[in-house]
Design a protein around this nucleic acid. Structure first.
Length: 909
RNA sequence: GGGCGCUUAGCUCAGCGGUAGAGCGCCGCCCUUACAAGGCGGAGGACCCAGGUUCGAAACCUGGAGCGCCCACCA
């Protein structure tokens, strides 16, 4: 044999760590991830994803790894398909979240009251924090292998993006979509800011429902009201009943006397009251309840704010409760009412839901906190709903359209002002003469009166106000940039369902409103064409991952132990869109690590078996042998499956298909059956076999590359088929390789091998002991078996294999039936007949069940009449085969001398 | 009070009209010159329950149960 020219120094075990660190830097250096809008053309369509920006504050967790891999996979595939791809990365300043983290940090550093630093100094400290930790996210993303265009890294508080925020605000302000008003807001007493409705979490708690009595001022009676927050009665300014409620109609217009203030509170009629709940009368606390606020608006009741921003009772409250914490006040108010005999009923526990701050989980207070800014949503919601219903934006899975439109239907105005320092300051100024105006650029004077004494609104905008602009502000909006024209609308948004409302819906609303159709590539201002919604990663016990539970998995730790490819594979395989939770532990990366190693070693075999001539040439093979046709056919089937799955964003299915093909087909059968040709074959046979193995492997690596970029690149380089797999073309279909005959024939051969292996195992024949076999089979399956006889001998460890189409005397042999063909294994005194009888009996048991079922089916006239002909025919053939096998096995039992305990035929049982 | 999702092998999940699949785990045997991060063989399932549609249902329809989630101004 000629000396081989291949590299035999490839290490036995795949070392993800060293491979991964080498390649990522190389890819970035070569500029593979950089998008260029000028390259976009008819033949080179754009494909763009903007990364949902992680918060600058934290480190990435495993959920980010999932989400990002789900973006990198389509990005890498489209890049290979020749699209001009842009994956635009960035981070979010995350107003409240960051401010809270930095405040906590400062406190730990001895700054007791961070707000005492003053606005400017505090904001400086946050920027310092951001500079320090913002990069960690980038490093993590690079370790994952994400193919982002780092030259376009954005941050929501970048100058350009901040200008976008101001332009958006001013435009909406001038169009009356943003207004300032005094309304009840959700107030977080811990973070001391207002929150939008979407920033609340709802939580069921076991509280109390206390019913107490208000005496009528004229002493003629009383009226009872119920509440779960009895302290709010300090802020009651009236009592409401339903206008049609006969029980109370005569009381409307009278007043009750407040037990602490002594003031007279009017009894009013309002149809918002549900006469069926409680007593049918409601205490009205306009400053601390959204419903009551509206009731008060309609009925003219005054507002009395009895809470301070920190959740303590204010001086405005009667009865000497001022200064008490709200929970303490609840107990005290209850006590005093009780002492005065005014409590008429108590229910404890009373389960009801409370709103909590989505950042710090404190119970929020509905509160009147002066004027707040709102976005009027009614004009925005309609087009956003239409876009989803008409399919201009498509949801994957489709079922999310329902919740999305339902949310838009019930939308209330969006509170966008936050009493924080970290964020985009509201671009509105007030002059001393009471004029109010919004401006994109910082003004010096009031445009109305020219006064220089102007002051900017102290509040900042809700983080989500800037986030909603993300898909276009990152591309240069409000300028009509090349990026915008080339890549907007973006192609896909990949995100979790938890921010469907908070973010996705708002991006669609604002995109449709703000972006001018003429500046986009399609003339549609919609931010993206597809929205892919995935679930959330949980821990192994399916609990939410959180720092306080200590069950957070750091992607870097997984990468360190198993490699980025392993993590990516694990996470993609989990990400079924039907599931809302993905439980995951560290060990789940095992399978991916093993898979990478398996591919590595398969490649090692292929390269080490490379024939001397034509080693590096990979040509589209012309199918030759049965084995080659089979492998090409199976590979093409896999390719088609992967393509389809990826088009449908079923990356889980794509990952499983690739795993199955490579491991169970390519390695277990393809490589194993190729060994005789590779090691003992003629030069021709060796070369052609190797050619197919290499061709298939090289293409499969490309199919797998989007999911496991590193190991595929490392191996692919050895083919010297191009510069990098990152920019190698995506495998084109080769439908002509599908060969169902070859698949059918090889599957017969596989089953012959399996049946012999099982036989060996059943009889405890050690691998070192030889057995021989004779197979009786006709037609093309016989040809198949003959052409693969050497391979079968090797795989089943036979020292002899006879193949014939003549009936043979089966005496003295075990009979195995494979797809109707007989496989005879001479017992030759080496095997225990009792064991063989047992084996046959076990088989007969299964056989009987199958036979009965088949017979019943074929006896069913409906089945014969209505089932498709091929189904009926298949059933007939099956029954026939079963009967033949049964006859053979019965004969065998007789021969082995254990027929006595053999069961009768199925019909007689 | 509405709505959505899930319920399939010990665990985590695919399958979504033609007699049950994967990964991990488990039990045997095997260091067979790609891989012990491996090979070969195996065990293990009233596909939540009850009705219905159908020749045929894990799959489709109706109802129910359990779990999870979302929405909602029951004070």
């Amino acid at each position: 044999m000629a000396e081989r020219s291949f590299d035999t120094t490839i290490p036995k075990a795949y070392d993800a760590k060293s491979v991964e660190s080498r390649w990522y830097a190389e890819w970035v250096d070569r500029g593979y991830f950089r998008a260029d809008p000028t390259r976009v053309s008819k033949d080179r369509p754009p494909f763009c994803i903007v990364l949902p920006p992680p918060n600058v504050t934290g480190a990435l967790h495993i959920g980010h790894a999932l989400q990002q891999t789900l973006q990198d996979v389509p990005i890498r595939r489209r890049r290979m398909q020749g699209y001009e791809t842009l994956w635009l990365p960035g981070t979010d300043h995350a107003g409240i979240a960051t401010q809270v983290v930095v405040e906590r940090h400062l406190r730990s550093q001895g700054v007791e009251d961070p707000r005492s630093l003053g606005r400017e100094a505090f904001v400086d400290r946050v920027w310092e924090w951001k500079e320090q930790y913002g990069n960690r996210i980038v490093e993590q993303m690079q370790a994952l292998g994400n193919s982002c265009d780092w030259s376009r890294l954005r941050f929501t508080m970048d100058e350009q993006l901040s200008r976008a925020v101001r332009v958006a605000f001013v435009r909406m302000y001038e169009d009356d979509l943003i207004y300032r008003g005094e309304r009840i807001v959700n107030w977080c007493p811990t973070d001391q800011t207002a929150l939008s409705d979407s920033e609340l979490e709802h939580d069921e708690v076991e509280g109390e429902l206390v019913t107490f009595r208000y005496p009528l001022s004229d002493g003629s009676g009383h009226i009872d009201v119920a509440t779960t927050r009895v302290e709010t009665m300090l802020g009651d300014t009236g009592v409401a009943v339903h206008p049609d409620d006969e029980r109370y109609r005569h009381l409307v217009g009278k007043t009750v006397r407040h037990p602490f203030s002594g003031q007279d509170l009017p009894i009013v009629a309002d149809s918002a009251v549900d006469p069926g709940f409680g007593t049918g009368a409601v205490k009205v606390t306009p400053a601390h309840d959204a419903t009551d606020f509206e009731t008060a608006e309609r009925t003219g009741l005054p507002r009395l704010n009895i809470l301070n921003g920190d959740g303590t009772i204010s001086d405005a409250a009667p009865g000497g409760f001022a200064g008490l914490d709200r929970y303490e006040a609840r107990r005290r108010v209850y006590q005093v009412l009780r002492e005065r005999g005014l409590i008429v009923k108590e229910e404890r526990p009373y389960v009801h839901s409370v709103g909590r701050c989505y950042r710090c989980h404190s119970e929020i207070e509905p509160w009147l906190s002066g004027k707040q800014w709102f976005v009027a949503v009614s004009r925005l919601a309609g087009p956003a709903k239409e876009a989803a219903e008409s399919g201009r934006v498509r949801f994957f899975p489709l079922r999310w359209v329902g919740p999305y439109t339902a949310w838009l239907d019930n939308l209330r105005d969006w509170n966008i002002s936050r009493q924080l320092w970290w964020g985009h300051r509201i671009p509105v100024w007030y002059c001393e003469d009471g004029h109010e105006f919004a401006a994109v650029e910082d003004p010096d004077t009031c445009p109305e009166c020219g006064s220089g004494r102007i002051e900017q609104d102290p509040d900042v905008l809700d983080t989500w106000f800037s986030s909603q602009l993300w898909p276009f502000s990152t591309l240069g909006w409000p300028d009509e940039t090349d990026d915008l024209r080339a890549f907007y609308p973006t192609s896909v948004l990949v995100t979790g369902y938890e921010i469907l409302y908070l973010w996705v819906a708002r991006m669609i609303m604002s995109g449709l409103y703000l972006v001018s159709p003429g500046s986009t590539r399609t003339g549609d201002p919609i931010p993206y064409e597809h929205v892919v919604i995935h679930g959330l990663v949980r821990d192994e016990k399916n609990r939410k991952m959180s720092k306080s539970l200590g069950n957070v998995i750091d992607p870097l730790e997984v990468i360190e132990r198993f490699g980025a490819d392993a993590l990516r594979f694990a996470v993609v395989r989990l990400a079924s869109p039907e599931q809302q939770n993905y439980p995951m532990g560290l060990r789940d990366a095992d399978a991916g690590r093993n898979f990478a190693n398996k591919i590595w070693n398969a490649a090692r075999l292929v390269f080490e078996a490379a024939p001397e001539v034509g080693v590096r040439e990979i040509r589209a093979p012309k199918s030759a042998s049965l084995l080659q046709s089979w492998l090409l056919s199976r590979h093409e089937a896999c390719r088609a499956e992967v393509d389809q799955a990826m088009e449908e964003y079923r990356f889980d299915a794509a990952a499983i298909a690739l795993h199955r093909f490579l491991w169970s087909e390519y390695c277990d059968w393809g490589l194993e059956m190729a060994k005789p040709a590779l090691y003992e074959g003629t030069d021709d046979r060796r070369t052609s076999t190797w050619g197919v193995l290499a061709w298939v492997l090289e293409r499969t690596l490309r199919l797998l590359h989007p999911i496991m970029p590193f190991v595929t690149e490392e191996i692919w380089q050895r083919f010297e088929a191009g510069e990098s797999i990152v920019v190698a073309p995506w495998p084109e279909p080769h439908w002509e390789h599908r060969d169902e005959d070859a698949e059918r024939r090889v599957s017969f051969v596989e089953e012959v091998v399996s049946s012999l292996r099982r036989f060996r195992s059943d009889h405890d024949v050690s691998p070192s002991r030889s057995i021989s076999a004779r197979v009786i089979v006709e037609g093309d399956r016989r040809e198949a078996l003959e052409s693969l006889a050497g391979e079968v001998r090797r795989l089943a460890r036979l020292d002899a294999l006879d193949i014939t189409d003549e009936t043979l005397d089966s005496r003295g042999s075990a009979r195995l039936v494979v797809q109707g063909a007989e496989v005879l294994v001479p017992l030759a005194g080496v095997l225990d007949p009792a064991v063989e009888c047992e084996r046959i009996r076990r088989r007969l048991l299964d056989l009987d069940g199958d036979t009965v079922r088949a017979e019943q089916k074929l006896a069913n006239e409906g089945f014969l009449a209505k089932a498709p002909a091929e189904v009926v025919e298949a059933e007939r053939r099956k029954l026939e085969g079963l009967k033949e096998e049964r006859a053979g096995l019965d004969a065998q039992l007789v021969e082995l001398g254990c027929a006595d305990d053999a069961a009768g035929s199925p019909g007689e049982r």
